[in-house]
Design a protein around this nucleic acid. Structure first.
Lengths: 146, 146
DNA sequence: TACCGATCTCACGGATTCCGTAGTTGTGAC
DNA sequence: GTCACAACTACGGAATCCGTGAGATCGGTA
Protein backbone atom coordinates (compact mmCIF):
# COMPACT_ATOMS: atom_id res chain seq x y z
CA UNK A 1 0.00 0.00 0.00
CA UNK A 2 2.10 2.85 -1.25
CA UNK A 3 1.10 6.35 -2.27
CA UNK A 4 0.44 5.33 -5.86
CA UNK A 5 -2.07 2.64 -4.95
CA UNK A 6 -3.69 5.16 -2.65
CA UNK A 7 -4.00 7.56 -5.55
CA UNK A 8 -5.52 4.85 -7.73
CA UNK A 9 -8.11 4.09 -5.06
CA UNK A 10 -8.94 7.78 -4.83
CA UNK A 11 -9.60 7.89 -8.55
CA UNK A 12 -11.92 4.91 -8.30
CA UNK A 13 -13.69 6.41 -5.31
CA UNK A 14 -14.76 9.23 -7.58
CA UNK A 15 -15.84 6.94 -10.40
CA UNK A 16 -15.61 3.18 -10.18
CA UNK A 17 -15.75 2.86 -13.98
CA UNK A 18 -13.00 5.29 -14.84
CA UNK A 19 -10.79 3.87 -17.64
CA UNK A 20 -7.36 2.59 -16.69
CA UNK A 21 -5.66 4.96 -19.09
CA UNK A 22 -7.28 7.98 -17.43
CA UNK A 23 -6.25 6.73 -14.01
CA UNK A 24 -2.73 6.16 -15.27
CA UNK A 25 -2.50 9.71 -16.51
CA UNK A 26 -3.70 10.99 -13.14
CA UNK A 27 -1.29 8.96 -11.03
CA UNK A 28 1.71 8.81 -13.38
CA UNK A 29 1.61 5.17 -14.42
CA UNK A 30 1.06 3.31 -17.65
CA UNK A 31 -2.30 1.79 -18.45
CA UNK A 32 -0.94 -1.74 -18.00
CA UNK A 33 0.58 -0.96 -14.62
CA UNK A 34 -2.70 0.50 -13.37
CA UNK A 35 -4.50 -2.56 -14.61
CA UNK A 36 -2.14 -4.84 -12.69
CA UNK A 37 -2.44 -2.82 -9.50
CA UNK A 38 -6.19 -2.61 -9.60
CA UNK A 39 -6.44 -6.34 -10.15
CA UNK A 40 -4.17 -7.00 -7.22
CA UNK A 41 -6.08 -4.65 -4.94
CA UNK A 42 -9.28 -6.44 -5.85
CA UNK A 43 -7.75 -9.91 -5.45
CA UNK A 44 -6.30 -9.03 -2.06
CA UNK A 45 -9.66 -7.73 -0.91
CA UNK A 46 -8.22 -4.33 -0.11
CA UNK A 47 -10.77 -2.67 -2.35
CA UNK A 48 -14.04 -3.60 -4.02
CA UNK A 49 -15.71 -1.80 -6.91
CA UNK A 50 -19.46 -1.96 -6.46
CA UNK A 51 -22.77 -0.19 -6.80
CA UNK A 52 -23.93 1.43 -3.58
CA UNK A 53 -27.49 2.53 -2.90
CA UNK A 54 -29.70 3.75 -0.11
CA UNK A 55 -31.76 0.61 0.58
CA UNK A 56 -34.66 2.71 1.84
CA UNK A 57 -35.04 4.21 -1.64
CA UNK A 58 -35.06 0.87 -3.46
CA UNK A 59 -37.83 -1.00 -1.76
CA UNK A 60 -36.44 -2.01 1.59
CA UNK A 61 -38.72 -0.51 4.18
CA UNK A 62 -36.73 -1.00 7.34
CA UNK A 63 -33.08 -0.60 8.13
CA UNK A 64 -31.42 -0.39 11.52
CA UNK A 65 -28.15 -0.25 13.37
CA UNK A 66 -27.85 -2.66 16.27
CA UNK A 67 -25.62 -2.14 19.27
CA UNK A 68 -24.83 -5.51 20.77
CA UNK A 69 -23.27 -6.62 24.04
CA UNK A 70 -21.71 -10.02 24.38
CA UNK A 71 -20.47 -12.17 27.22
CA UNK A 72 -17.33 -14.08 26.54
CA UNK A 73 -15.68 -14.31 23.16
CA UNK A 74 -16.86 -11.80 20.56
CA UNK A 75 -15.76 -13.73 17.53
CA UNK A 76 -18.44 -16.45 17.37
CA UNK A 77 -21.14 -13.78 17.54
CA UNK A 78 -19.40 -11.64 14.94
CA UNK A 79 -19.07 -14.64 12.66
CA UNK A 80 -22.73 -15.55 13.01
CA UNK A 81 -23.75 -12.00 12.15
CA UNK A 82 -21.40 -11.94 9.20
CA UNK A 83 -23.07 -15.05 7.83
CA UNK A 84 -26.52 -13.46 7.74
CA UNK A 85 -27.70 -12.01 4.42
CA UNK A 86 -29.67 -9.28 6.16
CA UNK A 87 -26.57 -7.98 7.92
CA UNK A 88 -24.57 -5.64 5.71
CA UNK A 89 -22.04 -4.29 8.14
CA UNK A 90 -20.36 -5.69 11.25
CA UNK A 91 -17.70 -3.95 13.30
CA UNK A 92 -16.07 -4.64 16.66
CA UNK A 93 -15.99 -1.53 18.79
CA UNK A 94 -14.71 -0.10 22.04
CA UNK A 95 -17.36 1.66 24.06
CA UNK A 96 -20.68 0.76 25.57
CA UNK A 97 -21.36 -1.72 22.78
CA UNK A 98 -19.10 -4.60 21.91
CA UNK A 99 -20.15 -4.60 18.31
CA UNK A 100 -22.32 -2.76 15.84
CA UNK A 101 -24.30 -4.41 13.07
CA UNK A 102 -26.36 -2.83 10.33
CA UNK A 103 -29.38 -4.80 9.10
CA UNK A 104 -31.52 -4.32 6.00
CA UNK A 105 -35.05 -5.72 5.97
CA UNK A 106 -38.11 -5.85 3.77
CA UNK A 107 -40.54 -4.62 6.41
CA UNK A 108 -41.28 -4.44 10.13
CA UNK A 109 -42.10 -8.12 10.44
CA UNK A 110 -38.86 -9.08 8.81
CA UNK A 111 -36.85 -6.74 11.01
CA UNK A 112 -38.54 -8.05 14.13
CA UNK A 113 -37.82 -11.61 13.13
CA UNK A 114 -34.16 -10.94 12.44
CA UNK A 115 -33.58 -9.10 15.67
CA UNK A 116 -35.58 -11.11 18.13
CA UNK A 117 -35.54 -14.57 16.61
CA UNK A 118 -32.12 -14.74 15.05
CA UNK A 119 -29.78 -12.25 16.68
CA UNK A 120 -30.92 -12.01 20.28
CA UNK A 121 -30.98 -15.79 20.51
CA UNK A 122 -27.37 -16.21 19.45
CA UNK A 123 -25.31 -17.82 22.21
CA UNK A 124 -23.31 -15.16 24.00
CA UNK A 125 -25.53 -12.22 23.13
CA UNK A 126 -26.31 -10.46 26.39
CA UNK A 127 -28.34 -7.52 25.09
CA UNK A 128 -29.09 -5.48 21.99
CA UNK A 129 -30.26 -1.99 21.31
CA UNK A 130 -31.86 -0.97 18.01
CA UNK A 131 -31.61 2.28 16.11
CA UNK A 132 -34.16 2.19 13.31
CA UNK A 133 -33.17 4.32 10.35
CA UNK A 134 -35.45 7.21 9.50
CA UNK A 135 -33.42 8.88 6.80
CA UNK A 136 -29.99 8.46 5.27
CA UNK A 137 -28.34 11.85 4.94
CA UNK A 138 -24.86 11.04 3.73
CA UNK A 139 -23.06 8.02 2.34
CA UNK A 140 -19.59 8.61 0.93
CA UNK A 141 -16.40 6.69 0.43
CA UNK A 142 -14.12 9.49 -0.62
CA UNK A 143 -11.65 9.83 2.20
CA UNK A 144 -9.30 10.49 -0.69
CA UNK A 145 -10.80 13.92 -1.24
CA UNK A 146 -8.52 15.51 1.35
CA UNK B 1 -37.64 1.82 -9.76
CA UNK B 2 -39.03 -1.30 -11.37
CA UNK B 3 -37.84 -4.87 -11.16
CA UNK B 4 -35.49 -4.45 -14.11
CA UNK B 5 -33.59 -1.57 -12.56
CA UNK B 6 -33.39 -3.58 -9.38
CA UNK B 7 -31.86 -6.43 -11.34
CA UNK B 8 -29.36 -4.07 -12.94
CA UNK B 9 -28.31 -2.77 -9.54
CA UNK B 10 -27.87 -6.31 -8.31
CA UNK B 11 -25.52 -7.03 -11.17
CA UNK B 12 -23.46 -3.97 -10.36
CA UNK B 13 -23.39 -4.83 -6.69
CA UNK B 14 -21.50 -7.96 -7.64
CA UNK B 15 -19.11 -6.15 -9.95
CA UNK B 16 -19.23 -2.42 -10.53
CA UNK B 17 -17.30 -2.73 -13.78
CA UNK B 18 -19.43 -5.42 -15.37
CA UNK B 19 -20.00 -4.60 -19.07
CA UNK B 20 -23.39 -3.27 -20.12
CA UNK B 21 -23.83 -6.10 -22.60
CA UNK B 22 -23.37 -8.73 -19.92
CA UNK B 23 -25.85 -6.96 -17.68
CA UNK B 24 -28.28 -6.73 -20.56
CA UNK B 25 -28.09 -10.45 -21.16
CA UNK B 26 -28.73 -11.10 -17.47
CA UNK B 27 -31.74 -8.82 -17.18
CA UNK B 28 -33.21 -9.17 -20.66
CA UNK B 29 -32.44 -5.78 -22.15
CA UNK B 30 -30.26 -4.46 -24.93
CA UNK B 31 -26.87 -3.00 -24.17
CA UNK B 32 -28.04 0.51 -24.96
CA UNK B 33 -31.07 0.24 -22.73
CA UNK B 34 -28.92 -0.86 -19.82
CA UNK B 35 -26.59 2.03 -20.48
CA UNK B 36 -29.47 4.51 -20.38
CA UNK B 37 -30.86 3.08 -17.19
CA UNK B 38 -27.53 3.00 -15.42
CA UNK B 39 -26.88 6.59 -16.42
CA UNK B 40 -30.23 7.65 -15.08
CA UNK B 41 -29.74 5.81 -11.82
CA UNK B 42 -26.41 7.56 -11.40
CA UNK B 43 -27.80 10.97 -12.36
CA UNK B 44 -30.72 10.62 -9.98
CA UNK B 45 -28.37 9.67 -7.17
CA UNK B 46 -30.16 6.39 -6.61
CA UNK B 47 -26.92 4.49 -7.06
CA UNK B 48 -23.21 5.23 -7.14
CA UNK B 49 -20.47 3.04 -8.56
CA UNK B 50 -17.36 3.43 -6.44
CA UNK B 51 -14.36 1.77 -4.87
CA UNK B 52 -14.94 0.79 -1.25
CA UNK B 53 -12.19 -0.01 1.22
CA UNK B 54 -11.66 -0.60 4.89
CA UNK B 55 -10.09 2.71 5.93
CA UNK B 56 -8.24 1.00 8.78
CA UNK B 57 -6.29 -1.05 6.23
CA UNK B 58 -5.26 1.90 4.09
CA UNK B 59 -3.57 4.19 6.55
CA UNK B 60 -6.35 5.70 8.59
CA UNK B 61 -5.67 4.79 12.17
CA UNK B 62 -8.91 5.72 13.86
CA UNK B 63 -12.50 5.30 12.86
CA UNK B 64 -15.59 5.62 15.03
CA UNK B 65 -19.35 5.65 15.09
CA UNK B 66 -20.90 8.51 17.00
CA UNK B 67 -24.31 8.44 18.60
CA UNK B 68 -25.58 11.98 18.93
CA UNK B 69 -28.47 13.57 20.80
CA UNK B 70 -29.84 16.91 19.74
CA UNK B 71 -32.21 19.44 21.22
CA UNK B 72 -34.59 21.06 18.77
CA UNK B 73 -34.39 20.61 15.03
CA UNK B 74 -32.21 17.75 13.81
CA UNK B 75 -31.64 19.07 10.34
CA UNK B 76 -29.09 21.82 11.00
CA UNK B 77 -26.91 19.37 12.91
CA UNK B 78 -27.28 16.72 10.22
CA UNK B 79 -26.35 19.26 7.56
CA UNK B 80 -23.27 20.39 9.48
CA UNK B 81 -22.11 16.80 9.86
CA UNK B 82 -22.75 16.10 6.20
CA UNK B 83 -20.51 18.99 5.27
CA UNK B 84 -17.50 17.58 7.12
CA UNK B 85 -14.94 15.63 5.09
CA UNK B 86 -14.15 13.34 8.01
CA UNK B 87 -17.79 12.24 8.26
CA UNK B 88 -18.58 9.45 5.83
CA UNK B 89 -22.01 8.43 6.96
CA UNK B 90 -24.92 10.27 8.56
CA UNK B 91 -28.30 8.80 9.37
CA UNK B 92 -31.31 9.99 11.35
CA UNK B 93 -32.56 7.32 13.69
CA UNK B 94 -35.30 6.43 16.12
CA UNK B 95 -34.04 5.17 19.45
CA UNK B 96 -31.81 6.46 22.16
CA UNK B 97 -29.75 8.44 19.66
CA UNK B 98 -31.19 11.03 17.31
CA UNK B 99 -28.53 10.44 14.73
CA UNK B 100 -25.53 8.30 13.96
CA UNK B 101 -22.40 9.53 12.24
CA UNK B 102 -19.34 7.59 11.16
CA UNK B 103 -16.02 9.42 11.20
CA UNK B 104 -12.68 8.51 9.63
CA UNK B 105 -9.51 10.06 11.04
CA UNK B 106 -5.79 9.94 10.59
CA UNK B 107 -4.97 9.31 14.24
CA UNK B 108 -6.12 9.82 17.82
CA UNK B 109 -5.40 13.53 17.84
CA UNK B 110 -7.40 14.04 14.71
CA UNK B 111 -10.31 12.02 16.04
CA UNK B 112 -10.26 13.94 19.31
CA UNK B 113 -10.27 17.23 17.48
CA UNK B 114 -13.18 16.29 15.25
CA UNK B 115 -15.32 15.01 18.09
CA UNK B 116 -14.66 17.52 20.81
CA UNK B 117 -13.81 20.65 18.87
CA UNK B 118 -16.06 20.39 15.85
CA UNK B 119 -19.00 18.12 16.58
CA UNK B 120 -19.73 18.56 20.27
CA UNK B 121 -19.61 22.32 19.84
CA UNK B 122 -22.26 22.38 17.11
CA UNK B 123 -25.32 24.36 18.21
CA UNK B 124 -28.06 21.96 19.27
CA UNK B 125 -25.83 19.02 20.11
CA UNK B 126 -26.77 17.89 23.59
CA UNK B 127 -24.50 14.86 23.96
CA UNK B 128 -22.45 12.36 22.02
CA UNK B 129 -21.24 8.85 22.60
CA UNK B 130 -18.32 7.34 20.70
CA UNK B 131 -17.75 3.80 19.52
CA UNK B 132 -14.18 3.51 18.33
CA UNK B 133 -13.70 0.84 15.68
CA UNK B 134 -11.44 -2.03 16.56
CA UNK B 135 -11.99 -4.25 13.55
CA UNK B 136 -14.24 -4.27 10.53
CA UNK B 137 -15.70 -7.74 10.06
CA UNK B 138 -18.13 -7.31 7.19
CA UNK B 139 -18.89 -4.68 4.61
CA UNK B 140 -21.30 -5.67 1.85
CA UNK B 141 -23.76 -4.01 -0.46
CA UNK B 142 -25.40 -7.06 -1.95
CA UNK B 143 -28.93 -6.98 -0.63
CA UNK B 144 -29.63 -8.24 -4.12
CA UNK B 145 -28.24 -11.64 -3.24
CA UNK B 146 -31.54 -12.85 -1.85
C1' DT C 1 29.60 -10.23 -7.85
C1' DA C 2 25.84 -12.65 -9.68
C1' DC C 3 21.27 -13.93 -9.48
C1' DC C 4 16.36 -13.68 -8.49
C1' DG C 5 11.87 -11.83 -8.11
C1' DA C 6 8.97 -8.03 -8.37
C1' DT C 7 7.48 -4.12 -10.82
C1' DC C 8 7.41 -0.93 -14.42
C1' DT C 9 7.40 0.66 -19.45
C1' DC C 10 6.33 0.05 -24.03
C1' DA C 11 4.31 -2.08 -27.72
C1' DC C 12 1.04 -4.89 -30.18
C1' DG C 13 -3.30 -6.62 -31.88
C1' DG C 14 -7.68 -8.80 -31.53
C1' DA C 15 -11.80 -8.96 -28.94
C1' DT C 16 -14.76 -6.42 -26.48
C1' DT C 17 -16.89 -2.39 -24.87
C1' DC C 18 -18.43 2.18 -25.05
C1' DC C 19 -21.20 5.76 -26.92
C1' DG C 20 -23.76 8.68 -30.07
C1' DT C 21 -27.49 8.48 -33.11
C1' DA C 22 -31.29 7.11 -35.91
C1' DG C 23 -35.38 4.57 -36.12
C1' DT C 24 -39.23 1.90 -33.73
C1' DT C 25 -42.63 0.89 -30.31
C1' DG C 26 -45.85 1.77 -26.66
C1' DT C 27 -48.62 4.62 -23.64
C1' DG C 28 -51.27 8.39 -21.83
C1' DA C 29 -53.52 13.03 -22.71
C1' DC C 30 -56.61 15.70 -25.14
C1' DG D 1 -57.10 9.97 -34.07
C1' DT D 2 -52.80 12.01 -33.21
C1' DC D 3 -49.50 14.29 -30.64
C1' DA D 4 -45.85 14.13 -27.28
C1' DC D 5 -42.85 11.64 -24.60
C1' DA D 6 -40.37 7.88 -22.67
C1' DA D 7 -38.08 3.67 -23.43
C1' DC D 8 -36.31 0.37 -26.39
C1' DT D 9 -33.57 -1.68 -30.48
C1' DA D 10 -30.09 -1.53 -34.05
C1' DC D 11 -25.82 -0.15 -35.82
C1' DG D 12 -21.17 1.68 -36.69
C1' DG D 13 -16.97 4.05 -35.40
C1' DA D 14 -14.01 5.14 -31.61
C1' DA D 15 -12.11 3.81 -27.40
C1' DT D 16 -11.08 0.50 -24.07
C1' DC D 17 -9.84 -3.86 -22.33
C1' DC D 18 -6.75 -7.59 -21.86
C1' DG D 19 -3.26 -11.00 -22.69
C1' DT D 20 1.25 -11.11 -24.10
C1' DG D 21 6.29 -10.57 -24.66
C1' DA D 22 10.70 -8.03 -24.42
C1' DG D 23 13.60 -5.17 -21.95
C1' DA D 24 14.89 -1.88 -17.87
C1' DT D 25 15.26 -1.03 -13.01
C1' DC D 26 15.67 -1.95 -8.29
C1' DG D 27 16.13 -4.17 -3.91
C1' DG D 28 17.35 -8.31 -1.47
C1' DT D 29 20.30 -12.31 -1.06
C1' DA D 30 23.52 -16.26 -1.61
Amino acid sequence: MDAVSLAIIEQLQEDGRRPYAAIGKAVGLSEAAVRQRVQKLLDQGVMQIVAVTDPLTVGFRRQAMLGINVEGDLDPVAEALTAMDEVEYVVLTAGSFDLLAEVVCEDDDHLLEVISKRIRTLPGVRSTESFVYLKLKKQTYQWGSR
